[in-house]
Computed example of a mutant assay.
Amino acid sequence: MTDINQTSGEQAEVDPWAEAMNEQAAATQSDAAKPADPVFKALEDTGGNKALARTLDMIKDIPVTMSPILGKKKMTIKELLELSPGSVVQLDAMAGSPLVIMINNYEIAKGEVVVVNEHYGIRITEILTPSERMQNLIK
Rank of each mutant, 00 (worst) to 15 (best):
Q6K: 13
G9Q: 12
Q11F: 02
A12T: 13
P16E: 09
P16I: 03
A18Y: 05
E19W: 05
E19D: 07
A20Q: 12
A20C: 01
D31E: 14
A33T: 06
V39F: 08
F40L: 15
K50H: 11
L56E: 03
I59M: 14
P63R: 08
T65D: 08
P68S: 03
G71M: 05
K72G: 00
K74T: 12
M75V: 00
I77M: 15
E79M: 02
E79T: 02
E79S: 11
L81H: 08
E82R: 14
E82A: 15
L83T: 07
S87Y: 08
V88N: 05
Q90S: 05
Q90K: 14
D92I: 02
D92T: 03
P98L: 10
L99D: 06
V100G: 13
I101T: 02
I101L: 15
M102P: 00
I103D: 06
I103S: 06
Y106G: 01
Y106I: 05
E107V: 04
K110M: 07
E112T: 09
E112N: 09
V114K: 15
H119V: 01
H119M: 09
Y120G: 09
G121Q: 10
G121E: 09
I124W: 10
T125L: 04
T125A: 08
T125K: 13
E126Q: 13
E126H: 13
I127Q: 07
P130C: 04
S131P: 00
M134I: 08
L137M: 15
L137V: 11
